[in-house]
């Protein structure tokens, strides 16, 4: 089967994830949208791996998963800390870093 449908699906998921990041204000949901974008990229990697007939793309997807796991752990810890001090998980509330 051609790779193009997979890539288009990947692009759609990525775009939806990006819009989600931009419109949602709950930090945890924003995080989920980021994960969606990462997964969309992974799909592209795996597709290209098949396209080219070697495993490098799968390796890249693997590394993305590792990094995503680490990122989620730290990111959620940060959200927890912010929530503990400000009783809010909204990304708009954490807007002190400005002029």
């Amino acid at each position: 089967m051609s790779a193009t449908p997979f890539l288009i699906l990947s692009a759609l998921l990525f775009g939806v994830g990006a819009v989600g990041v931009l419109v949602r204000r709950n930090a945890i949901v924003v995080f989920m949208c980021v994960e969606l974008m990462l997964n969309a990229a992974n799909l592209a990697f795996v597709t290209f791996s098949r396209q080219h007939g070697n495993f490098d793309g799968q390796i890249a997807a693997f590394f993305v998963m590792v990094v995503a796991a680490a990122e989620v752990v730290v990111g959620l810890a940060i959200i927890m800390t912010i929530f503990r001090t400000r009783r809010s998980a909204s990304v708009d509330d954490a807007s002190l870093l400005k002029y």
Partner: peptide
Amino acid sequence: LGLLFGLLVVVALSQATLGTVVGL
């Protein structure tokens, strides 16, 4: 912007010639 982005990627993909799938 999201629509524009997705549209651009789709356009780019449709223009790209990927060749035959080698398979694993």
